[in-house]
Amino acid sequence: MSHTPTDEHAYVGVDEAGKGPVIGPMVVAAVRTEPARLPADVDDSKRLTPERRTEIAAALRADDAVALAVITVDPPAIDAPASDMNTLTVRGHARAAGQIVRPGDRVVADAGDTSESRFASRLASTVDDSIDKREAMAVEAAHGADETDPVVGAASIVAKVARDARIEAIDRTYSAYESVGSGYPSDPTTRAFLRAYVGDHGDVPPHARRSWATCADVLAAAEQSALDEF
């Protein structure tokens, strides 16, 4: 983590990457800085090329006036029976923001709930830091904040680059297979990997979110195929 910025106009932006994939973690990033210090083309990570995302994330990490925090929520936590994605997202945002927020800060998050106000309220009450910070800071949440707020956009970039790095590492774990793909259910490469892995091992891989419908579908198809062959 780099040094905490001291400019009075600095504030914390928070966003996550990987809420919907069937493979790999959700990654949450928080960035504390002054918007003027950010590259002019900072934007929602989805609107930038992978190369530019990597460049911006590296520049942010190298800037002593930018504080970063990155946390991961791994598949076992996502699959836990008592968990739900809204709560996990709130807690992830709170853990990341809590590492770098300062008394009196403004925190702006990309809303991970249909209700922006509910997400902001839950986030404010969940920040796992000292009570004085929770009471002093102002928390806002908005849909599309990664497009409209530069510091939230920076957080989305850091989260996406970290998530992509995790997927690359996961892919290397399964070198016997062609590729795990992006990890998203809509990706044919990801679905092909899951089918091949289940065909070989009779279960989904450890990095998969087994509570996702995609995993249930692949397991059911494998079971039906075995019955048909029998």
Score class of each variant (00 low, 15 high):
Thr4Gly: 12
Thr4Leu: 14
Pro5Met: 07
Thr6Gly: 05
Asp7Ser: 12
Ala10Met: 05
Tyr11Cys: 00
Val12Leu: 07
Asp15Leu: 03
Asp15Arg: 03
Glu16Ala: 02
Lys19Leu: 13
Lys19His: 11
Pro21Ala: 07
Ile23Ser: 04
Ala29Asn: 03
Ala29Met: 04
Thr33Phe: 06
Leu38Asn: 02
Val42His: 02
Asp44Arg: 00
Asp44Pro: 01
Ser45Met: 06
Arg47Gln: 14
Leu48Met: 12
Pro50Ala: 08
Glu51Val: 12
Arg52Ile: 04
Arg52Gly: 03
Arg53Pro: 04
Glu55His: 08
Ile56Asn: 01
Ala58Arg: 15
Arg61Gln: 13
Ala62Leu: 07
Ala65His: 15
Val66Asn: 00
Val73Asp: 03
Pro75Glu: 07
Pro75Thr: 07
Pro76Cys: 09
Ala77Leu: 15
Ile78Gly: 03
Asp79Pro: 05
Ala82Pro: 00
Thr87His: 11
Leu88Pro: 02
Val90Ile: 11
His93Val: 02
Ala94Asp: 02
Ala94Ile: 04
Gly98Asn: 07
Gln99Lys: 11
Gln99Glu: 15
Arg102Pro: 00
Asp105Val: 05
Glu116Leu: 09
Arg118Tyr: 04
Arg118Ser: 12
Arg118Ala: 14
Ala120Ile: 04
Ala120Thr: 02
Ser121Gln: 12
Leu123Trp: 01
Ala124Gly: 12
Val127Trp: 00
Asp129Pro: 05
Ser130Cys: 11
Ser130Leu: 13
Lys133Met: 03
Arg134Gln: 08
Glu135Ser: 10
Met137Asp: 00
Val139His: 00
His143Asn: 00
Gly144Asn: 08
Glu147Cys: 15
Glu147Ile: 12
Asp149Gln: 02
Val151Met: 03
Ala154Phe: 01
Ser156Gln: 03
Ile157Arg: 05
Ile157Thr: 06
Ala159Asp: 02
Ala169Ile: 07
Tyr177Phe: 14
Val180Asn: 00
Ser182Val: 08
Tyr184His: 13
Ser186Leu: 14
Asp187Phe: 03
Thr190Leu: 05
Leu194Tyr: 09
Ala196Lys: 10
Tyr197Gly: 03
Asp200Ile: 08
Asp200Cys: 11
Asp200Gly: 11
His201Lys: 13
Val204Ile: 13
Val204Gln: 07
His207Gln: 15
Thr214Phe: 06
Asp217Gln: 15
Val218Asn: 07
Val218Arg: 02
Glu223Ala: 15
Gln224Lys: 15
Ser225Ala: 15
Leu227Val: 15
Phe230Val: 14
